[in-house]
Measured scan of single mutants.
Amino acid sequence: TVKFKYKGEEKQVDISKIKKVWRVGKMISFTYDEGGGKTGRGAVSEKDAPKELLQ
């Protein structure tokens, strides 16, 4: 599970739902399947990112 803040809201998403991951400076950005055909997005700092996300 990845915990992150998006627009001031605390969120979390299961690693299995993450589609795409990329690095922006010291942040790790990602998109994930929100269900219902929607794609969500989020970002975590490199130090807070789970190891599975960095692979």
Score class of each variant (00 low, 15 high):
34 E>I: 11
26 K>I: 13
44 V>S: 02
3 K>Y: 12
20 K>T: 10
30 F>T: 00
18 I>Y: 00
7 K>T: 02
32 Y>E: 00
4 F>H: 02
21 V>Q: 03
44 V>L: 10
37 G>W: 03
49 A>F: 14
54 L>W: 09
51 K>H: 11
39 T>Q: 09
26 K>E: 14
52 E>V: 10
31 T>E: 11
48 D>C: 09
34 E>A: 15
1 T>A: 09
16 S>V: 12
1 T>G: 06
16 S>M: 11
41 R>C: 13
11 K>F: 10
38 K>V: 12
13 V>P: 00
5 K>H: 10
9 E>Q: 13
10 E>F: 11
21 V>H: 04
32 Y>T: 01
9 E>Y: 08
31 T>A: 05
31 T>R: 03
1 T>F: 14
28 I>S: 00
40 G>L: 08
24 V>W: 14
8 G>M: 04
54 L>S: 06
55 Q>E: 14
21 V>R: 03
3 K>N: 09
33 D>V: 06
21 V>C: 08
5 K>F: 15
45 S>G: 06
39 T>W: 09
12 Q>T: 15
21 V>P: 01
14 D>C: 09
52 E>Y: 10
12 Q>P: 01
55 Q>D: 14
39 T>P: 04
30 F>L: 01
39 T>V: 14
52 E>F: 13
34 E>C: 10
45 S>V: 09
22 W>G: 03
53 L>S: 01
51 K>W: 14
14 D>I: 06
17 K>Y: 08
27 M>N: 07
17 K>F: 09
47 K>H: 09
20 K>L: 11
42 G>W: 03
44 V>E: 00
17 K>Q: 13
55 Q>R: 13
43 A>C: 13
2 V>Q: 01
17 K>G: 04
10 E>Y: 13
43 A>T: 15
37 G>N: 07
47 K>Q: 13
39 T>H: 07
55 Q>M: 14
4 F>V: 04
27 M>K: 08
22 W>Y: 09
37 G>P: 03
29 S>R: 15
7 K>E: 08
27 M>Q: 07
53 L>K: 01
8 G>Y: 03
25 G>H: 05
19 K>M: 12
46 E>I: 14
34 E>G: 05
34 E>M: 14
48 D>G: 06
15 I>N: 02
24 V>E: 13
10 E>S: 09
1 T>R: 07
21 V>I: 13
2 V>H: 01
7 K>G: 09
19 K>Y: 11
6 Y>S: 10
15 I>R: 03
26 K>P: 10
16 S>I: 12
43 A>S: 14
6 Y>R: 06
42 G>D: 01
